[in-house]
Design a binder for these strands. Structure first.
Length: 337
DNA sequence: AAGAGACTCAACCGCTCACAC
DNA sequence: AGTGTGAGCGGTTGAGTCTCT
């Protein structure tokens, strides 16, 4: 009643800025288990110091298993241009025609290069209408500048389609853009996410497997080899992810210093069973490896909170544009400016 | 080698829409 | 019908990186 809209969250009490890997892990595992019926309540339930909106955005744009990352193919770019002509800046509508692509990503691609290309194309067609120029195929700037990492990640999440898109880039096959688009829309990435947002995997093993496949590709961004990430054996065994019900685990994870395999001992000293202990330790070991914590110099904790010092994922000199850097907090970000 | 500017993209902001009551 | 709330959308920002000079 005239009071204006209440803020969606208390900005003083939520963490903002880039997501840390452990936050991502929490969000992914929570949604895998519980779905996302209520974004507003989710952060609290998942033990995240984040705004629900921020969680939603992170999930939709980057963490969703069916999100397709990396190179936009020429056909995708063409489709975006065409769709933009008819729909305008309705990014979510455009995104709905490009399975696996998010509105944010499309918006970025449009703003960064497709807009220019579209404008220049229009100018060209105005100047010399009729002369068909297909040269724009060669200047697929986004394709060239987006790292192979994203393709790798996608390949791990959706191997078939990733290969498709990659081969498609290499060989411009005969199918028309619309045909290609049809194919993409109908068959490509059938979302694993149910209506409630819960990831639809049939059994716990698959669930874990898909999660790790995904995360494996995701966090192995800097491993330039095409080899499979050296996943620990735990991936082959039924292994459940500790969830919000085990907040101690997450807190433990967050406050972990360098991981010391030989020093594995019960953290609470008495409550957890041996089994849980072993499983947690396996899990931690895996996380440590995936997140690169074991290589850190060790003095840094990673508390989850506004002052989080996120781990640095990138090896020096490996990270080009488009690499996963959102979760990479600059240690001292006064690097250049 | 260093600085400046350009580029990219993840994340935030604020608004609108949809729905429940 | 009016109001409150949550979700979703589009625009914008800002930090990191690259490229040019």
């Amino acid at each position: 009643m005239g009071k204006g809209r209440a803020p969606c969250c208390d900005k003083d009490k939520v963490k903002r800025g880039p997501w840390s890997p452990s936050e991502d892990m929490r969000l992914i595992s929570f949604i895998q288990k519980h779905g996302h019926q209520n974004w507003r309540a989710l952060p609290k339930q998942a033990g995240l110091l984040r705004c629900g909106k921020s969680c939603r955005l992170r999930w939709i744009n980057y963490l969703r298993p069916d999100v397709k990352r990396g190179n936009f193919t020429k056909d995708e770019e063409d489709a975006i241009i065409r769709l933009h002509e008819t729909m305008g800046n309705k990014w979510s509508k455009i995104a709905s025609h490009l399975p696996g692509r998010t509105d944010n990503e499309i918006k970025n691609v449009w703003n960064t290069h497709l807009k220019k290309r579209s404008v220049s194309n229009n100018e060209k067609t105005h100047k010399k209408d009729g002369s068909k120029e297909s040269s724009m195929a060669t200047s697929s700037s986004s394709s060239s500048c987006i790292s192979s990492y994203t393709r790798e990640a996608f390949a791990m999440a959706v191997p078939d389609k990733a290969q498709d898109s990659e081969t498609h880039q290499l060989s411009n096959n005969g199918s028309s853009p619309s045909e290609e688009l049809e194919g993409l829309s109908s068959s490509s990435i059938s979302s694993n996410v149910t209506n409630s947002g819960q990831v639809g995997v049939s059994n716990p093993e698959d669930q874990v497997g898909s999660l790790f496949n995904f995360i494996g590709g995701y966090y192995d961004a800097n491993n330039n080899t095409s080899e499979e990430v050296n996943k620990p054996d735990i991936l082959d065994t039924a292994f459940d992810i500790p969830l919000e019900s085990d907040l101690e685990f997450w807190n433990m994870l967050d406050s972990l210093g360098p991981f010391q395999p030989e020093g594995i001992e019960s953290h609470d000293g008495n409550q957890s069973s041996n089994f849980e202990e072993v499983e947690n330790n396996k899990w931690l070991l895996y996380l440590e490896q995936e997140l690169g914590l074991e290589s850190m110099d060790g003095s840094e904790d990673e508390p989850l909170g506004p002052e989080t010092n996120d781990m640095v994922l990138k090896p020096e000199g490996e990270m080009g544009m488009g690499h996963y850097h959102s979760t990479v907090q600059p240690h001292e970000s006064n690097a250049t400016k």
